[in-house]
Simulated assay, not measured.
Amino acid sequence: MVYEKNWVQAWLGFGLVWFFGAIALAPSNKIYQQGLVVFLWLPALLLAWPARRVLVEAWRRQPALWGSVLLLMAWGGVSLAWTPAEDLAREAKRLLYIFVFLLAFPLLAQAGGDRIRNLLQIGSGLLAIAALISIIHFYGLQAQPLVARLAGIGEISHPILGAYVIGAAALLLLYQMPRRRLFQLGWMLALACLGAFVILSQSRGASLALLVTMVLAPVWLRDRHSRILAMGAVLATALAFFVMYNLITARGASFRPEIFEQVLKMIGEHPWTGLGLGAAYNVKVASVGMQFDHTHNMFTHVAVELGLPGMLLWIFVWLFALGEIIRARHTLLGKILLGLWVYSTMAMQFDAASLTATPRAEWFVSWLPVGLVMLLPWVRAENDACGKISGST
């Protein structure tokens, strides 16, 4: 089959690595988007017919997940009938981008679980390099004071969203320690760069999401490595509070309760239809005399745009993804994705508020976890086959 050929898998694999590393390392966002089209979207579309059996099998193995995704896409398309967005074709095209992005993952799964984990390691390693460059550029070349919030390079320049991307990369590396000593050194340096980025960004949401995930991880990983990391995370957090207490508490709750109160009123004005896909809006908080360009919460953002039906459909997507992860909890990738799911769920409560826009930082805590979950049926089957072979010898 053409989709099983090495050059095809290399093409798709490079696309996944590009998705990770180029978000920070590409010269511009335009080049990042164009690279995704060439390296991920295009091969997925070209292979859709030759690999139709794989895609049918993907639907057969995860009907609830794929069905909820398609229903969400369909509802978003219907909302174009009332959205005030100026370019309806662009909004519809973004839905297509999401769908094609997800189609790529069952095709990537044909390369095998080991190769997928290697690709995730390479992509996360590139983000570690981007984190190091960001730190040197911001505090070295720009001579910013250490108390300033780190702004990264490329599309991780936003302190909060950039920290979410880097935190996701850290989790994908954290529980995959290489066996060789030389590689272990590189692994530790990469994690040090990623962790330093999150701390220096002063993103309390990303830090809390990482802390909660690492503390809970021993529940499903059940190994000494995860317990040591959990204790280290608690100690590091205590040290951070001791050293950076004033910086951590200076911004208070960042008006999140006031924003949430106003957003509930906005949802109540259009509970069933929302404003429509791609609608621009501002959250005006009169009590503090400020306005914000989104809800600072993924679920309420979807409710504002697509109404309560859209929010419920996104919740279904997210919960069905969790169900698939739990089914694969005996595999290493399943365990890693459970951590990423917990982390992403936490992250979506604090800021990430862009679900249907072009690929950007928010995709690392929304569509990337969903896409990776779509690999799991093949990873699970591969793991079960290996178990039967080892059990019969």
Rank of each mutant, 00 (worst) to 15 (best):
A131P: 07
L95K: 06
I156L: 01
G162V: 14
L126D: 04
M188F: 15
A168E: 13
A163R: 04
A168I: 05
N118R: 15
R115Q: 07
Q176W: 10
P106D: 11
I129W: 09
Y175D: 01
P84V: 02
L171G: 10
L120A: 12
I98M: 12
G195T: 08
F105K: 02
G195F: 08
Y175E: 02
P145F: 04
A81F: 09
A163F: 01
I116C: 07
F138S: 05
V100M: 10
P106A: 10
V100S: 12
M73C: 10
P106S: 10
Q144M: 12
I129E: 05
F138E: 06
A169I: 13
L108I: 03
Y175W: 13
A74C: 07
G77I: 10
F183Q: 11
H158S: 14
A170V: 09
L191Y: 08
L102H: 01
R149F: 06
L127G: 01
I129C: 09
A169H: 12
G154T: 10
I122F: 10
R90P: 03
L174E: 10
L189I: 15
L96Q: 03
V147E: 06
E91Y: 01
L146V: 01
P178A: 08
F99V: 09
A170R: 11
Y164P: 03
L161N: 15
S79Q: 00
R94V: 04
L120D: 14
I133K: 12
Y139W: 02
A130W: 03
A170C: 14
F101S: 06
A81E: 04
L191A: 02
G140I: 03
L132K: 06
P84Y: 06
L172P: 00
G140M: 08
L72P: 08
H158T: 04
G186V: 11
L103E: 03
S134R: 13
L132N: 03
I133D: 10
I116F: 04
L185Y: 10
A169P: 14
P84A: 08
A128T: 04
R94G: 02
A74V: 09
Q176M: 05
H137K: 14
I153Y: 01
L194D: 00
F105S: 00
V100P: 07
A74E: 05
G186I: 11
G77F: 11
L189F: 15
F138H: 12
L171D: 08
F99S: 13
G154H: 07
H137I: 01
I116G: 08
F183N: 09
Q184C: 13
V147P: 00
I133L: 15
A104G: 13
L172M: 11
A92N: 09
P159R: 10
L173R: 13
A169C: 14
R115F: 04
A128G: 01
A74T: 09
Q142P: 00
L103T: 00
G76W: 00
L126P: 08
I135W: 12
S124A: 15
L126A: 09
I122M: 09
A131T: 11
Q110L: 15
I122L: 14
L182M: 05
A111P: 11
I166K: 02
A104I: 11
G112Y: 02
E86T: 12
S134K: 12
G113L: 05
Y175H: 10
A163G: 01
Q184F: 08
R181S: 02
G152N: 05
I133A: 15
G125D: 02
I136M: 10
